[in-house]
Design a binder for these strands. Structure first.
Lengths: 224, 224
DNA sequence: CGCTTCATAAAAATCGATTTTCATTGAGTT
DNA sequence: AACTCAATGAAAATCGATTTTTATGAAGCG
């Protein structure tokens, strides 16, 4: 499946995975040479990939000193969450107003696929399906700029989810939530759809936020 | 003035300038080797800079085939404008709610500087002051993600302004508009401030949009 | 005459080596 | 003991050369 057109895009893909999955711990250094060996390629593609990732906020660059995995904090996560709700709210509303039959059908399809997957059993597939579903919801928004931005924010949120490593997911009726969102979108009920999406994000986020705050409290007491 | 920490950041800066100014015409190819010679450095920093610029939407990458200056269109500009109004509206409202004394004072200062400059006489300085003023308006928004995104959209808009090369700027009372925006912001009148900002963008944009449409019509008749 | 195939040139992509910069450590000084 | 400064090792940054891919155009074929 690693059929990339260039080593750079392969490196980008792989390092991104490492950041999103939490394999590269927040705050830890990312040495070009180490990655280079791991991916079995020269330093150039790795450097280039890291440069790209840093302008996607998935890696922090420190000129002449190297690259790091971004730090996390409850505060930052809260802001990210709020940003997402508002920006994606705009994109979603737009999509509902502009979406045609293909948009509708894709949502129906992806909602079905997502609901059919058991998150605890096939997490990787679920992740893919989940991203595709959320991407499909807003896909009919005419602003590629907004869609791009939403995709970036999605990545950052996924990373928080993984990094916080919530062994036990708060199994609310997530299936139902997704279905309700899809339903409202297809009914062209902009306000209700956006509200449901925001609630969905905020509820998932609330749990994670508290988790992060607890972690910070623990770390503070250890460090001090 | 070219005191950059690395050749990569220098290259990024210079190529960005070339794109924003319109020196690199929309749709034209950006050859690494040509840029390399022009900037008198190796290909690596140039490549890396182009990679970064492409993830900032200022350059289009085509894997294995090179880099191009992005195309323009009235349609795309319209979407960009609308995106800006809405996203920057959010950021601005946030800033007004959260801004402290330093935020206020900076707006006052930069508004003064901007108004003191004659756009037709000192365009470069005016560009800088204009950007700083608009950046200052939203600077107190707590979401660095939003601020980042706004900065990107600003760049894209500047490019359209320059590329369209409006010899005669539509000299509305721009000075006055900026002052009114600042005034409303400092008065913490969120709705009025955001409306004024959006009007400001839309009015400037309207002229440019029509200009682009005319250009497209002309080109079509030439091509066909 | 149009289509495919192959050779060639040009450019992008990548590599390995070299240069530059940064962080650390330990000797020397006050 | 604290501070400065030079030496050293490590890593980033850059370069020039090599490899790979793409675009072009000519020759061959239907």
């Amino acid at each position: 499946m690693d059929s990339h057109r260039s080593l750079t895009s392969l490196a980008h893909h792989r390092i991104r995975e490492m950041v999103l999955s939490g394999e590269l711990r927040p705050g830890s250094r990312i040495q070009i040479d180490a990655v280079r060996k791991k991916l079995d390629m020269g330093a150039s593609p790795v450097r280039e990939a890291l440069s790209i990732l840093s302008s996607e906020q998935l890696v922090v660059r420190n000129e002449q000193r190297g690259f790091w995995a971004p730090d996390i904090s409850a505060d930052d996560f809260g802001i990210l969450l709020e940003t997402r709700c508002r920006v994606e709210g705009i994109a979603f509303a737009d999509a509902i107003r502009h979406g045609g039959p293909e948009w509708e059908e894709r949502i129906v399809l992806l909602q079905y696929r997502l609901n059919a997957l058991d998150r605890t059993q096939k997490n990787t597939e679920w992740e893919v399906a989940h991203r595709e579903f959320h991407t499909a919801l807003i896909a009919a928004c005419p602003s590629r700029y907004l869609l791009n931005f939403c995709a970036q924010l999605y990545d950052l949120a996924v990373r928080y989810r993984n990094v916080a490593r919530l062994a036990a997911y708060p199994e609310r009726k997530i299936i139902n939530e997704h279905s309700l969102i899809a339903e409202a979108a297809l009914a062209r009920d902009v306000d209700r759809a956006v509200d449901l999406l925001n609630d969905h994000y905020r509820k998932t986020g609330e749990f994670l936020y508290q988790n992060l705050e607890e972690q910070e409290a623990t770390q503070l007491s250890v460090a001090g």
